[in-house]
């Protein structure tokens, strides 16, 4: 089977089991997991962003982010601290997205159309600190271009790209979380980078 063609959120895919085995990165303090408020405060926005751009659905992102945090909190006893909390949560989020797609496939696709990301609105959230008007405009344009490029990526490419460049995971971590060979992760990243960089006006 061609691993690249396999959707990370494939309905028949087994839940990702490598989440708890962790990565080489040392985890954050375990106490973070014992406080639901801290968990939400630290990770919610980041999770929301990840799911939002992975799925392109703002409503689904809200639901998945909340479910992910709740699942993580309820199963915190199983978190052994061998991976970072961020990595662990991302793995749970991926499984949660898959569950939603499996149960609400058609409804999800309807929602994708109705609650798509507003790129214009999102780009306006860029901080103007230290930027002159021209720099701010340029940064906003870059944000728009990246967001538009992401929309054109396949789901796998998008997810792997976000894990690498937004979640700042290593290729090894991504490979472990997605149970995907490093070579496959690399291929996804190359394809995604080519698309995003060309959108940004990179050298062909």
């Amino acid at each position: 089977m061609n691993a690249i063609a396999t959707d990370i959120f494939d309905f028949d895919a087994k839940p990702i089991g490598a989440i708890e085995s962790g990565s080489t990165e040392r985890s954050r303090p375990i106490s973070e997991m014992d406080d639901i408020d801290a968990l939400v405060k630290i990770h919610r926005a980041r999770l929301l962003r990840f799911v939002l751009y992975s799925t392109g659905d703002a409503d689904l992102a809200e639901t998945v982010a909340q479910e992910t945090l709740l699942k993580a909190y309820n199963s915190r006893a199983s978190f052994r601290g061998e991976s970072s909390v961020k990595t662990w949560l991302t793995g749970i989020a991926i499984n949660t997205i898959r569950d939603h797609l499996r149960s609400n496939r058609y409804r999800f696709w309807r929602q994708v159309r109705s609650t798509a990301i507003d790129v214009q609105e999102m780009s306006s959230f860029i901080a103007a600190d230290g930027l002159n008007p021209e720099g701010l405009l340029l940064a906003r344009e870059q944000v728009k271009h990246i967001a538009q490029a992401l929309e054109k990526l396949s789901r796998n490419q998008k997810t792997v790209f976000l894990m690498k460049f937004s979640e700042e995971m290593t290729v090894a971590e991504i490979s472990e979380i997605l149970a995907m060979p490093v070579k496959t992760v690399r291929t996804h990243l190359h394809r995604a980078l080519k698309s995003v960089r060309s959108q940004l006006g990179g050298r062909p």
């Binding site: 926005a45 959230f125 944000v143 937004s166 980078l193 960089r197």
Partner: peptide, 25 residues
């Protein structure tokens, strides 16, 4: 410049999307 352009773009995207997500949160 190619590398920096991409990194700057991603930095802007990450900060904007995170701020947007936080506002959404």
């Amino acid at each position: 410049e190619q590398v920096e352009s991409f990194r700057c773009g991603m930095d802007a995207f990450n900060s904007a999307s995170l701020a947007w997500s936080e506002a959404g949160a």
